[in-house]
């Protein structure tokens, strides 16, 4: 994070990211009270549906407008087998800058890494990193330990599969968990690699406040990784014990989203 501001972006100017159709689900309150919109960015394998399940509706009930994006190649967005992290960041910044007001970026899982990169390209009002997978070997080792069969193929360029115990806590009904698991898509190979070998995010522009949330029982993101992520943004993680990695789908999903919205209302630059 101690990297310097980057002005020259030769490759970006010479080879801009190609546009791909983007799926954006939105839920807007009937009465606009001038609050900042929230843009939810799903992690690898997930799509906008993961937020449409509970969080979008809840956000609107609290008077905020919510938008959920599917990264390219996932769910309802256009196919992009060769997508890279840079293309994902492009998608997030495109949607965010198309919103009527400065947006709050909420990234889950590897989507939090996309958000961390996007913060360097767009002056967000604020950001929330939910169970952030910020990459590196520690993430890979944790995943290997808890789900060797699903993770090993990914290390050699195959598909990353998450299992029930990684994503959900014990309280979520079995068939609901199975329904969510069946919707998981396949992340792009190159982006998956960049989780291990990608660059550190550049410093955020506009100095947005950043909140880190997670669960101590998360089997994808260890507790130490949460603390490290929060320390990057000079704070401590908010913890929700008993939940799995997918905080927006697990039983008790309302607690983290309420925490984010409460935090936004208290933030001087937020509500």
């Amino acid at each position: 994070m101690n990297q310097q501001v980057r002005v020259i972006r030769g490759w970006e100017w010479a080879r801009p990211v190609r546009p791909v159709r983007r799926e954006v689900l939105e839920a807007v309150p009937a009465l606009d009270e001038g609050r900042p919109p929230l843009l939810f960015v799903p992690g690898f394998g997930h799509g906008a549906w993961a937020f449409a399940e509970h969080w979008l509706g809840h956000t609107v009930e609290r008077g905020f407008s919510g938008y959920a994006l599917s990264l390219r190649g996932q769910s309802g967005s256009g196919p992009a087998p060769e997508a890279t992290l840079r293309a994902y960041v492009h998608d997030v910044v495109q949607v965010a800058s198309g919103l009527p007001r400065r947006a709050v970026l909420v990234g889950h899982g590897a989507g939090a890494l996309v958000v961390a990169h996007a913060l360097a390209r767009y002056p967000a009002r604020a950001a929330a990193l939910v169970a952030p997978v910020l990459g590196g070997w520690a993430t890979a080792f944790t995943a290997l330990r808890h789900n060797p069969l699903g993770t090993l193929p990914a290390l050699v360029g195959g598909r990353l599969r998450c299992n029930h115990a990684q994503l959900f806590g014990p309280e979520l009904p079995r068939d609901e968990a199975r329904r969510h698991l069946s919707r998981l898509g396949r992340p792009a190979r190159r982006a998956q690699w960049q989780l291990l070998f990608g660059r550190e995010p550049e410093p955020a522009v506009g100095d947005p406040p950043v909140l880190v949330l997670g669960s101590p029982e998360d089997r994808v993101v260890p507790r130490s990784a949460l603390t490290r992520a929060a320390r990057r943004y000079a704070s401590a993680p908010l913890l929700f014990p008993g939940m799995g990695h997918d905080l927006m789908l697990d039983a008790g999903w309302w607690e983290p989203i309420d925490a984010i919205l409460d935090w936004l209302e208290k933030e001087p630059s937020g509500g």
Partner: peptide, 15 residues
């Protein structure tokens, strides 16, 4: 062209 014209932190729509 667009990438060389837009504000660096507020891109023009890519369509």
């Amino acid at each position: 062209s667009r990438p060389l014209t837009q504000f660096p932190d507020f891109p023009m729509p890519d369509d």
